[in-house]
Design a protein around this nucleic acid. Structure first.
Lengths: 111, 111
DNA sequence: ATTTTTTTTACTACAATGTAGTTTTTTATG
DNA sequence: CATAAAAAACTACATTGTAGTAAAAAAAAT
C-alpha cells in the first residue's frame, strides 16, 4: 500500500498527536481520544500505531525528563512531522472532495 | 473492532457509492475514484470491500437489467444504506472535532 | 450455430493495519 | 529494601487493504 495513505486508527492517533502539541505520549493520547471522541482504546494499540507512524516518518519521538510524579519509565514524547501534516492534509482534502460531490447530502438524517 | 468505524479504503468506496447515486458498480466505482482522487485501485480490491460493506449493512445491492452495450454479466448495483450514511457522518464529525482542536493549524504549510 | 471478444462478477491469497493482553523497566514512597 | 505506580516494550492474533486469477454471460464475428 502507498505510504501516503494511513489507516483509520493511524489517522486518529496522528491527529491526536498534533492536538496534544508536544505533550503526546501513550497515556495522554488515550485520555485525549477518550475525552474528545468517547472512544476507548488500549495502550498497546496506541503504542503499536505510534511505532508504525514513526517508521513511516509521520511522527518523531524523544524521551522526556523524569517528572515530579511517582514512578514510571521516562515518557516518550511524539510530535508530528511535516510529512505527517502533509499526509493528513491530503486525506482530508480527498474526503472533502467526495463529500462535496454528493448529490443528496445526508448529514443529520438521523439521530 | 467496532462495526461503527470503517477502514480508510472502505470509507472511500462507501463515499463513492453515495456520490454515484444509484449508478455504482465495480467498474464505475474504479473510474470515479480515478477521476476524483487520481488514485488507481484494482477491481478485486473494490469488489472485496463492497462485499464487506454489504455484510456490515452499509450498502445494499441489486442486479441491473441487461443494457445495450456488448457482453458482460449483469451489473450489481450498490446503494448506501441509512446505516452507511450514519457511519460516514460519525467519522466525519469525529475527525472535524480533532482538526478544530489543533493549536497550530497546518493546512498548506507545504507545496 | 460455434467461436471469439468484451464486460462484468466471483474467488483466492497474502500484505498491511487494528487491537489488546502480557511483560519489563523505572522510580517514588512506606 | 519491598512495594506500588507509571510507563514503555513485546507478542499475538483479528480485521482490513490489495490485487491476481477464474468464471460467467452476452453480443459480435465467422
Amino acid at each position: 500500500m502507498s505510504q501516503l495513505y494511513l489507516g483509520e486508527f493511524e489517522e486518529i492517533v496522528l491527529l491526536t498527536v498534533a492536538v496534544l502539541d508536544g505533550k503526546a505520549y501513550g497515556m495522554s493520547i488515550i485520555d485525549e481520544i477518550k475525552s474528545r471522541l468517547g472512544r476507548n482504546v488500549s495502550l498497546g494499540a496506541v503504542q503499536t500505531v505510534l511505532k508504525r507512524l514513526e517508521e513511516k516518518g509521520m511522527v518523531s519521538s524523544d524521551f522526556g525528563e523524569a517528572t515530579a510524579v511517582r514512578g514510571g519509565k521516562r515518557k516518550r514524547y511524539y510530535t508530528i512531522t511535516s510529512t505527517g501534516q502533509q499526509s493528513l492534509t491530503v486525506m482530508k482534502e480527498q474526503r472533502m472532495a467526495l463529500w462535496n460531490a454528493l448529490p443528496h447530502p445526508f448529514a443529520l438524517n438521523f439521530i
